[in-house]
Amino acid sequence: MYEGVSSPIIHRPKTLSEFAQTSQKATSPLIWSGGSSIMTGKNTYPLINSNFDSIIYLGDIKELEDFQRNDRIAEFGAMVNLYDLANYGKNVLPSILLEAINSIGVSIITKRATLGGALSIVNPVTSIVPVMIALNASVELRYMKKKRFKNHWIQASQLIDKNGQISIPPKGLITKVRVGVSDMSTFGKFLKAGSYNRSPEETVFGAFVTHVNQNTLSQAHLVLTFPTVGTYTSRDMDNIFNSLKFPIGKDGESSLIKSISTFIDSSFSILPLQKALLEGFIEDIVGSLNEIALTEPNYAKGESYE
């Protein structure tokens, strides 16, 4: 019978050093944080065409559930679930991140979805990934190298490989995530169009974050995720935003949309619907930035657009 014969061994380390020892000995373990993405996969049970022979469950490692903050950054353990993240971080986290978590909506899911898990799935299933990248979040990554357990802090954007998929070293683990606290001068826009679990091929997640200095932008960051395809982020694309002076007219907006579409087309093949949703997002961003530029106090001091 299947049962008993094919049951993966469950390891439940209590500390990170126990995790290191366990993962060293295990041949091909499946790292299990909240498990929401794993359990909702099509071939999860029974495991068909998979190489996993054991599961390392992170739920007993208390270090991964910590939360700390100071006046500049907030740091979360990777096992903090998204529901708690939204609650603890209500007055601290950037609103775009809270918006992204709330867009998942249902606490029955967010209580099982962890931050580390959300950032580790090869093809992102939530809007957390583009938002974290756009916010320049950093993650602590721990992985085996030459039989030693290393740890590194890297930018969240470095998790994305050239194919737009999230790539973590084998037996690697995200242990902590750091993100800047909410800042009044930061402008953020978030997009979630479609429903990942019911129609992933029609869905788009997007995040745009920038500093606004009167009518120009700096450190603009646009990140787009197309589930089933990949995540797109590009310095060239960001630099286009940084070079713009707001307000921009319809022509400028069209030209911007065209440039972004060209960038996306060079890497991914997406549906016309997804392109249309992306266009709507850019229009929304431009509209808001135009509004900010037109209502900035400096312009009230005698300057005019006529």
Binding site: M1, Y2, E3, Y45, P46, I48, N49
Partner: peptide
């Protein structure tokens, strides 16, 4: 077969 899991794996 003897259980759904084995049948599902064999069927794949």
């Amino acid at each position: 077969g003897t259980d759904f899991e084995s049948v599902e794996i064999a069927l794949s």
